[in-house]
Design a binder for these strands. Sequence first.
RNA 1: GCCGGCGUAGCUCAGUUGGCAGAGCAGCGGUUUCGUAAACCGCAGGUCGGUGGUUCGAUUCCACUCGCCGGCUCCA
Length: 644
Amino acid sequence: MPNPELIQVTLPDGTARAVPSSSKAGQALREAAGSLSSDVLAVKVNGVLRDLDSTLTEDASLEPVTFDSPEGKEVYRHSSTHIMAQAVKEVFPSAQLAIGPAIRDGFYYDFAFERPFTPEDLEQIEARAHEIIKADHAFKRMEMPQQEAVEFFKARGEKLKEEILRNLEDATVSLYHQGDFVDLCRGPHVPSTGRVKTLKLLSSAGAYWRGDERNPMLQRIYGTSFPSQDQLDAHLANLEEIKRRDHRKLGKELDLFTIQDEIGPGLVLWHPKGALIRLLIENFWRAQHLQQGYELVYSPHIARLDLWKTSGHVDYYRENMFAPMKVEASEYQLKPMNCPFHIMIYKSHLRSYRDLPIRYAELGTVYRYERTGVMHGLFRLRGFTQDDAHLFCRPDQIEAETTRVLDFTFSVLRTFGFSEFEVYLSTRPENATGSPESWTQATGALEAALKGRGVLYQIDPGEGIFYGPKIDIKIKDALGRAWQCSTIQVDFNNPERFGMAYTGEDGKAHRPIMIHRALLGSIERFFGILIEHYAGAFPTWLAPVQAKVLCITDRQRDYAEAVVAQLKAAGLRAEADLRNEKVGFKIREAEKAKVPFMLVVGDREVEAGTLSVRGRSGANLGSMPAQKVVDLIQADMASTVSAQ
RNA sequence: GCCGGCGUAGCUCAGUUGGCAGAGCAGCGGUUUCGUAAACCGCAGGUCGGUGGUUCGAUUCCACUCGCCGGCUCCA
């Protein structure tokens, strides 16, 4: 018989050890491993995240949790936000606690307070938080019946905590305190405030209680914390890098686009260089679609309101639509979507099962009403262009079509320089239309396509759209940020609403399935992502100016112009800088414009019939004749596009 | 839409007890003809986002309004 006073703990490496029952988890870890690093913040007991001083009552597998794991970061930041909250309560006792979770790269805490926090307030709070860290208060967990906790927070005047508690269904709740500060909290936490090595408050902003704009506005403070100053500095440098790459800033500096007051918010003016890049993107897109068996179509920007009643948009999408306009006796609507048009093209003929799948693609510019305050550069606009396509197929073709779209999507995204993806499959939501059988069948087809291609994906349960399941693909940019661009959505609803049909082998009418799909999402938004991904230094195939010929003195002007003519004849985008400026100045300007190739010509080059080639950011590629330069640039273009 | 911050020359930004509006860069005119990220001199450039109010007088104070930025919310 095992000793009832002893329990067995097992480490991830298989080490096992018997420790007295009711040992602290941290103590057990130390005994089993021989030592306990101060990096260990918490512990997973049988897979459940717990405090180091939680008590063990039975045999358990123990896994130390450090900052390196997502859970460790979560615990670390969660403890950090408690420290900040304590500081706020000490500096501003009238502030009431709302909630304070860890978030990606940091944490926030919401407070009910009589006024917004100022930058000076944040400094004061941060200073106080550093004192709390220095004091190294232990985080102590205590449990009490819910009713008792309600009374406890009521007595302390924490009305929001009281409200949260009243909505909790647990009979027993846990509280954590460090020093005099107490908060309702599930935990776990690091052992003591001193474990948080750095803590920096970043900003404050208004935020609604429970995220609902009908609720009162709270004051949110954002901050972050890291185990070392180096890591914090790296994170702050990363924030600077994000600012440096901001497409709104680069768009202006590189003269790509503007969004102007006089035109209206959320509406873009494409300047020549930006428009050229867009043209290159679109040309590539169209050529690829034709190759992939799509048919390109165009549709108008407005249509009778009745069309949008049939599609259901008037019912469920009205808040995102501009107001209808009166034209003669009927009402017309600026289009928020392209799908009804493609459906009507389908419906213009009787369709046979032999015709399916039919694939219509369009770079369709849509207009959606976005509330002021949500527009954001090219990322969130009122007028934007979807790289839209609608596939009409039989139910048994969903999987094959999805497979084709997946292959196509990854190939196109790779060409644009993205190689890391996150894929999500969203399943049936509460308010779904369509029969459960069709949902099961379609979801199964999407999943089979993903599996067939060996794509790793996560399931988002219940996150499908009401009309069908979908696959979303996020791309990771150069800074590791994920952007959702591509989407593949099965639609049972619209074929029904529009009474779509095809004639089957049996001579009877059948209902086709519709698949909405976008690869880039919106051209504008994708362009913005590209700008940030490349920090404005577009790959050569997309660079608006691929080569700039820089003469050193006026003596080389004729030669420079002849070179430009030769490059242009070879199909390259080249310009000459013939100004009476020093070459250093011309290089500086070309660098700022992110021109991939700078071709310097002085007397030596004229004499030898060559060009001195300087790559972007300073690489000296040597001197060579113009034809060699053409080869070099074309090879550089091909290296990117060949990924397709 | 809501909370906070902001709006001065093409761009980046100075400008406090309310008293004729400034710099650098860009632009234009000269000089310079130069070897891999900023030559020099000069000139011009603004109903200080808009409207209304207070005042002898408003870029400055107040109200309203438009827009931008950071969030909330929502999404491509």
